[in-house]
């Protein structure tokens, strides 16, 4: 469980996140949704400590993460897997080396055990026969899947995904969503996913928060989202004409 209390963050005096409080539950895919520029990435990066926050608290279970220094954070960070908006695979390493990297860095497994783990993770995300390729030789969706494999290599307790399916075709997008949800349940992780894709919301949204201009406007699940009174949320949910027609027909 991850708990955020009264988090605020600004860049050069411009407020990007304003007094956000939320609890992300274990074993569920928690979604952060909102328009482009609303502050989703900043919120995710603040939670994991890539941005120093101005005020507020971030708890990982019973540990007040936001007050720890770099060395103490390390312990929690080895339990975090993160998928970045741009995949962030290491360019100079092959697919296989990318996934093996956290194992090399933080475990004392034998090379054989590491290989097995690497292949297991890559199989899990349906990447086959690409072990020796470099990131530049992969398609966008493959990169995302390799990045997921790398994120789960150490069996993390916490999984963070920043727009896992942006820029992908609808079928691949749904596959990746389903994969994230499955992994979350299988390993009972606390997963947080940023997205502005309504398909994902309806597929995997067990707990959803909606942020607009850095303020949390709404919180609920995928069934409740269709019946909220929040007008900015409704504009977001029913942005496309198909959804608008369906709503009108109702």
């Amino acid at each position: 469980m991850i708990t955020v209390k009264n988090l605020s963050k600004s860049f050069n005096g411009k407020k990007v996140l304003d007094d956000i409080s939320v609890t992300f539950e274990t074993g569920k895919t928690n979604l952060i949704i909102g328009m482009s520029g609303s502050g989703k990435t900043v919120l995710l990066k603040s939670i994991v400590g890539l941005h120093e926050i101005d005020s507020g608290e971030i708890w990982f279970e019973d540990t007040l993460f936001s007050e720890l220094n770099f060395t103490d954070r390390k312990e929690i960070r080895t339990e975090i897997g993160m998928l970045f908006q741009g995949s962030a695979l290491f360019d100079s390493k092959t697919v296989e080396q990318n996934v093996r990297f956290p194992l090399d860095m933080f475990t004392n497994k034998t090379p054989k055990e590491k290989n097995e783990r690497v292949n297991f993770c890559l199989n899990r995300v349906n990447i086959v026969k690409a072990n020796k390729l470099f990131p530049a030789e992969l398609s966008g969706g493959m990169k995302k899947r390799v990045a997921i494999a790398r994120a789960i290599a150490l069996n993390p307790k916490y999984l963070f995904c920043d727009e896992p399916n942006s820029g992908l075709d609808p079928i691949t997008a749904i596959l990746i969503d389903a994969l994230i949800k499955e992994l979350t349940e299988e390993y009972s992780m606390t997963t947080i996913v940023n997205t502005h894709d309504m398909n994902s919301v309806m597929e995997i949204g067990e707990k959803i928060i909606f942020i607009s201009n850095g303020v949390k406007c709404w919180e609920g699940n995928k069934d409740e989202i269709l019946h909220s009174d929040c007008s900015t949320l409704n504009d977001f949910v029913f942005a496309n004409s198909l959804a608008k027609k369906l709503k009108a027909a109702k």
Binding site: K45, V48, L50, F70, R73, K74, E75, R77, T78, I80, M82, F84, Q85, G86, A88, L89, F90, D91, F101, P102, M105, F106
Partner: peptide
């Protein structure tokens, strides 16, 4: 610099690597 802007440095930090 490229590793910074493509978030590869963030990825290292997140894993707990200095």
């Amino acid at each position: 610099g490229t590793m910074r802007v493509t978030e590869q440095i963030d990825a290292l930090e997140i894993m707990g690597v200095n």
